[in-house]
Design a protein around this nucleic acid. Sequence first.
DNA 1: GTCTATATTTGGATAGAC
DNA 2: GTCTATCCAAATATAGAC
Lengths: 194, 194
Amino acid sequence: MEASALFRRHGYQATSTRQIAAAVGIRQPSLFHHFANKQAILEALFSLSLDNAVVVAERTANASGSAAARLHDYLVWDLETLLSLPLSLSELYSSDILRAPELAHWAAKLESLYLALEKLVRQGIEAGEFVATDPVLIRILIANVTIAHIQYADERPDRDPKKLARDGARFVLAGLSNMESAHLDELISGTRSR
Amino acid sequence: MEASALFRRHGYQATSTRQIAAAVGIRQPSLFHHFANKQAILEALFSLSLDNAVVVAERTANASGSAAARLHDYLVWDLETLLSLPLSLSELYSSDILRAPELAHWAAKLESLYLALEKLVRQGIEAGEFVATDPVLIRILIANVTIAHIQYADERPDRDPKKLARDGARFVLAGLSNMESAHLDELISGTRSR
DNA sequence: GTCTATATTTGGATAGAC
DNA sequence: GTCTATCCAAATATAGAC
C-alpha cells in the first residue's frame, strides 16, 4: 500500500527503497527480507490489480447478449474493485514501466485484458450499439477514464465507490453509445447478475 | 522534443541527461550549455503546452453563450493544438512532478486552467446542460480524456489531428450532457469562430 | 558549441550482528 | 525480522581545454 502511494506520486523509478522503508517504519535493508528486490514490490501490485481483471474481462467478452450491457457491467465491476482496493495504481498503468523486458509477463497479461476489451467494443460496433470509432482509441479512453476515477477517489476518499463506479461506467457508455439517453438509462438501470 | 518523448516513456526523474544528450547526438555535459539544468528542460515543455491554454480557457469561461458549446470549442482547440505539437506530454500531466516546490509556478498555472474549466462546467450544470456531477471529477475526466488522445496519437501518428480533436470533444460532451444526441449533434456541428 | 575528466550525491543491494 | 556498515553503479553538474 505505501509503495503504491509513493509510486503514484513520484513514479516507480523515482521512488527509492529508502522512501518505501521509511513509509512503513523500517530501515531500507530490512525491505529485502520481505521482497527479493525493488521490482518484486511492483510485481505484487500488478498481480493484485490485474489477475482477476483479465479473467473477468475475457469472460465478459466471450459471453452473449448486448455488448453495451456487458461493457457496462464490466466497467462497474472493475471500477468498484479498483476503488475499493487500498492501492494507488494510476501511475503504474499510465507510465511505460511495462515496456521493461523484465516485466514482459505483466505486459502480456495487460495486453490480454486490452484484447478482450477491444473484442467487446468491436461486437458493440458491429451490432450498431456503439459509434464506429477505432476500438484501440476506445480501449485507451476506457483505461484513462478508469485512471481518472482512481485519481478522483485519491483526492476525495469520502466518496462512495459504488456510486462512483456506476457514474464512471455511465460516462463511458454515453460517449460510446449510438442510442438515445432514455434507452441508455433503461439498459443501465437493470440489475444484472455477475 | 526528444526530451519529451523520453519523459513520456520513462518519466521525468527516470530519464537521465545522458539519454537526452544521446537522443540529440551530443555528450551529456554539452546539454548544460543550452539549459541551466535538467529542470529547465522540463519547464520549457510546460511553457509550450500551458501558456496559451490558460489564456484560452479563461477567456472561454468568461465568455457568454451555451456552456456546452463553449466547452466543446475549447476542447477542440486544446486537442488540436496538443496533437499538432511535436511533443509527448502525457507523462508530464499524469505524474505528480508538479508537486515539487521548485515547480510551484507551473502548478499554479495549471491550477488556473483547472479553475477556469470547473467554472465553465459549473455554468453548464446550472443551466441544466450538463448532468449534476462534481465539477472536480469532470475536470479530472477532461484531463484524462485529453491524455488518452495524446497517447493514441503517439501510437497512430497517421491519424488526422483535426478529426481526432472533434471526436474527443464529442466524447466528453456526450458523457457530460443532459440532452439527447440529436440536439448535441446540432450544437456541435455548427461552425463557430474562435 | 562540444569535448574529456571528474567532483559529488544518491540509489539498489549485500554482509553479518543481534 | 530488523539493524548498522558498506559496496558499487549511476546520475547531475562543474572545470577547463579546444
